[in-house]
């Protein structure tokens, strides 16, 4: 056996198991979903090929469109809420602008350490018709029938969930930014201070340009995570009432596992993949321009 052949076999043995595992748990389900998305299949029996019918049905379904709108709002609150807010908090702590920064760091990070289901139940205990806030408002307003009507509004029912998402996940971005801020050479900032730079100049001229790649990475995390949002919302509202808080992942879940439309559910899951890829590509192109400008 030649040395080159031996090397190939060794590589194959070392990499093969990982490739096989990756293929079986990542590649195979995606390919399977892609194929199943072109079929009508209840999960039992033989799938029937239906072409693009599942995709046309999905796009013409107002419930899907409402779910898509809600998902895009979650993407927006993640990218334009969690990331800037997380960065601002990290910067405040990094620059020691508050006392007790260790305490704030812990408190802000705390929500992410709690299970999404527990968080959902916690907020439900506060805002449900029998919840703490509702009961308190009934006493204050002397109105025994008071409930938070925002949950029954088609346009705004998602807002309380956006708030909880912002509250819950900002901490993780803060920690990511803080870790990367701490990698900046303190000498650079000291030099800027000695040169008379003001705080906003340090932020925009020194710190932010070094954070462009991190912002891009967190934006990718935020987009991918937002499009597959499920657990928190499902536990909080189940997508209701009347689909008002439904997101695409819940729409997929209900169609697949409750109504046994495995083919249709597969098409919805592929739509999540396509949307993720599309949005991430768009973000990539924006950040390439930013990179060219600042880095």
């Amino acid at each position: 056996m030649t040395a080159s052949r031996e090397k190939k076999i060794a590589y194959g043995m070392l990499v093969g198991p990982s490739v096989l595992i990756y293929a079986s748990i990542i590649i195979f389900p995606i390919v399977f979903s892609l194929v199943a998305g072109f079929t009508e299949w209840s999960g039992l029996g033989v799938p029937e090929f239906v072409g693009l019918k599942n995709y046309t049905r999905m796009l013409s379904d107002p419930v899907f469109r409402l779910g898509l709108r809600n998902n895009l709002l979650i993407v927006a609150i993640s990218v334009f809420g969690q990331i800037p807010f997380g960065f601002a908090l990290a910067y405040i702590i990094y620059r020691r602008m508050v006392r007790g920064h260790d305490f704030f760091e812990t408190m802000i990070f705390l929500p992410i350490t709690i299970s999404a289901i527990v968080v959902a139940k916690l907020w439900n205990q506060i805002f449900s018709p029998a919840g703490l806030f509702t009961q308190l408002m009934r006493i204050i307003r002397d109105d025994p029938r008071f409930v938070l009507s925002v949950f029954e509004d088609r346009t705004f029912a998602i807002v309380p969930i956006l708030f909880v998402i912002l509250w819950m996940y900002t901490g993780i971005y803060m920690v990511i930014f803080l870790a990367n801020l701490q990698r900046i050479d303190p000498g650079v900032i000291e030099a800027a201070v000695i040169d008379g730079a003001r705080e906003h100049q340090i932020l925009f001229r020194v710190v932010l340009p070094q954070m462009v790649n991190i912002v891009f990475t967190t934006a990718v995390f935020a987009i991918a995570g937002s499009l597959k949002s499920f657990d928190l919302i499902f536990a909080m509202t189940g997508g209701g009432p009347a689909h008002y808080t439904e997101v695409i992942a819940i729409y997929m879940y209900l169609n697949t596992f409750k109504y046994y439309n495995y083919g249709f559910g597969s098409a919805v899951s592929m739509m999540i993949v396509f949307l993720s890829l599309g949005l991430i590509t768009a973000v990539q192109s924006v950040f390439r321009r930013l990179e060219a400008r600042y880095v």
Partner: peptide, 14 residues
Amino acid sequence: EMFSPGINQAAYGQ
């Protein structure tokens, strides 16, 4: 207003 307030928000059991 005959039903429980927030009937469509209330979990089964309330």
